[in-house]
């Protein structure tokens, strides 16, 4: 390969990576209005924005990377929608935001986590030896999405959501592997 072709290949490679990144950003863009919805809840805006920003960045990088790293993203988003939206619906529905004095919101996070975890157990790529990445990605994305909605109760809310999700996922994953 001569010098011209080497330069052309380098230029083409840059174009390929830029094209992948652009495509990833476009694929992530529908999540932005969903994240904006999370601001309707009672969680502090800066925490929601930080969590949502992290989610968007992570999902963009996963899509850009591609292959097994992007396979788990769609099931993770679908599963994470439930624990994300449950607390928001409860809060927007008129329930007072009084941290610590009402069990409805943590219960909502737990129920959302359980349902989301069940969905994850059904839809996430089956974990296999040497091929755990898609399953881990799906769980991580679902957890991040749920966290956006359950931030109101801080670590308690997140822990409750995660516990519900793990419970919902574990049983179904075991069944699918058998």
């Amino acid at each position: 390969m001569n010098a011209l072709e080497s330069r052309l290949e380098a230029r083409s490679r840059r174009a390929y990576e830029v094209g992948r990144l652009t495509h990833a950003v476009l694929r992530v863009s529908p999540l932005v209005p969903l994240m904006a919805l999370a601001l309707l809840g009672c969680s502090p805006s800066h925490e929601v924005l930080a969590c949502a920003g992290t989610l968007l960045l992570v999902v963009t990088l996963l899509f850009w990377r591609g292959q097994e790293w992007s396979v788990g993203v769609a099931p993770g988003i679908a599963a994470g929608l439930v624990p994300m939206l449950f607390p928001i619906i409860i809060q927007v529905g008129g329930h007072l935001c009084l941290p610590g004095s009402c069990l409805l919101l943590p219960a909502g996070c737990a129920a959302g986590g359980l349902l989301g975890g069940s969905l994850l157990g059904i839809a996430a790529p089956r974990p296999r030896a040497g091929r755990m990445t898609p399953f881990i990605v799906a769980c991580s994305v679902a957890g991040l999405m749920g966290a956006v909605g359950c931030l109101l109760y801080g670590l308690v809310g997140l822990a409750v959501m995660a516990a519900g999700m793990a419970t919902g996922t574990a049983g179904l994953v075991v069944v699918r592997r058998v």
Partner: peptide, 14 residues
């Protein structure tokens, strides 16, 4: 040919 090649790789993800 060069422009086509670069364009093809830029759109390869799609």
């Amino acid at each position: 040919a060069q422009e086509a090649l670069v364009k093809i790789f830029r759109q390869a993800a799609r």
